[in-house]
């Protein structure tokens, strides 16, 4: 009876008892979710346009952030460093296309997936060799990102919003909107969607596969850089981020792999779900549930909708 009470009644009483805490938790979940969505967005871009499940997206985030901070530490001015990092991401995209994707055209998905695993290891090794394995501090101030916090008095308490979180949310949402428009209404966007549906058919109408791949990997690289800056400004820049990036997987699965709005909604569900779960139910099982809760939330959703929330319904034919 106690158990049922502590699972089904007590958490809700806590929520009602301290609504400001609830709002605070929701906000933190929201920001976390936005950041998951940003990582997932990188996956979606590449999956949409090449059918490749890019496992290296997480490490690309770390790598981009490390490059930015590393360049700044070498004495390059902040915004020049930013521009140079974008250049580096372009070089990576071009190299990936030339060395990894082009020789592997028309291989099964799993092979391409594994190749991005190889890429992950390569980038980890390179990143550690060049920049060292120690956590670094993101150059948030130099990039004119806001600092400090705003306190909002509401519901009989105080809710603290970090300014950087607000900035992260705004920038992320703006970028998501831009990308949606880009995909839907531009010529390149249409070509990207065509390539995603069928490599061969796209080739036959004169779309250059190689060019498209460089473009999407570059876009994913830029998304990774922005994600890296935001994430780095909230904590610090380290390889630990890579495990966090794995949480983009349940987000993707919820969103259905190819949907940009799906990535956002999936990110929010996972972000808010795991914060609320950890804060109100976590103590019951000893805490630190954040390591696995996201996957279980996604799993529960999947049992009811195997194609994800925004994926198209699978009709099996034979």
């Amino acid at each position: 009876m106690d158990l049922i009470y502590s699972i089904f009644v007590d958490p809700f009483l806590q929520m009602a008892g301290a609504p400001d805490l609830l709002v605070q938790t929701l906000w933190e979940g929201f920001v976390g979710g936005i950041l998951y969505a940003l990582i997932a967005l990188g996956f979606v871009l590449i999956f949409k346009a090449s059918g490749v499940f890019n496992f290296a997206q997480g490490i690309m985030v770390v790598f981009a952030a490390l490059t930015l901070v590393g360049l700044y530490e070498k004495g390059v001015p902040a915004f020049l460093a930013l521009a140079l990092t974008i250049g580096v991401m372009f070089l990576i995209a071009a190299a990936v296309e030339r060395v990894v994707l082009r020789p592997l055209v028309n291989q099964p998905d799993i092979i391409l997936f594994m190749a991005t695993f190889g890429l992950t290891y390569l980038l980890i090794g390179l990143g550690e060799a060049i920049f060292g394995g120690n956590p670094k501090v993101m150059i948030a101030e130099q990039l004119y990102l806001p600092k400090g916090a705003v306190d909002i008095k509401m519901l009989g308490g105080v809710v603290t919003l970090q300014k950087i979180d607000i900035a992260a949310a705004v920038i992320a949402l703006a970028m998501i909107a831009c990308l949606s428009v880009f995909f839907q209404y531009t010529r390149i966007g249409r070509a990207l969607r065509a390539v995603a549906d069928s490599h061969k058919a796209a080739l036959s109408v004169g779309i250059s596969l190689n060019q498209i791949w460089v473009i999407v990997w570059f876009l994913a690289g830029v998304v990774a850089l922005i994600t890296g800056i935001m994430w780095g400004a909230r904590s610090d820049v380290s390889f630990a981020l890579q495990v966090v990036a794995l949480k983009a997987l349940p987000v993707l699965v919820l969103g259905g792999f190819t949907s940009i709005p799906g990535a956002v909604v999936g990110g929010l569900i996972i972000g808010i779900g795991e914060k609320i779960g950890e804060f109100y139910w976590g103590p019951l099982v000893g805490g630190a549930t954040e390591s696995w809760l996201a996957y279980c939330i996604a799993l529960v959703f999947l049992m009811f909708r195997p194609q994800g929330l925004f994926g198209e319904r699978i009709i099996e034919r034979i």
């Binding site: 592997l104 092979i111 190749a115 190889g118 890429l119 390569l122 090794g125 060799a129």
Partner: peptide
């Protein structure tokens, strides 16, 4: 030791890609 570790990562990554290309 650290360099060896990094080299292992780089080499492993490169070899995975290499093998997939040569013989998937």
């Amino acid at each position: 030791g650290t360099v060896a570790e990094h080299a292992t990562y780089i080499l492993l990554g490169a070899l995975i890609i290499f093998f997939l290309i040569v013989e998937p």
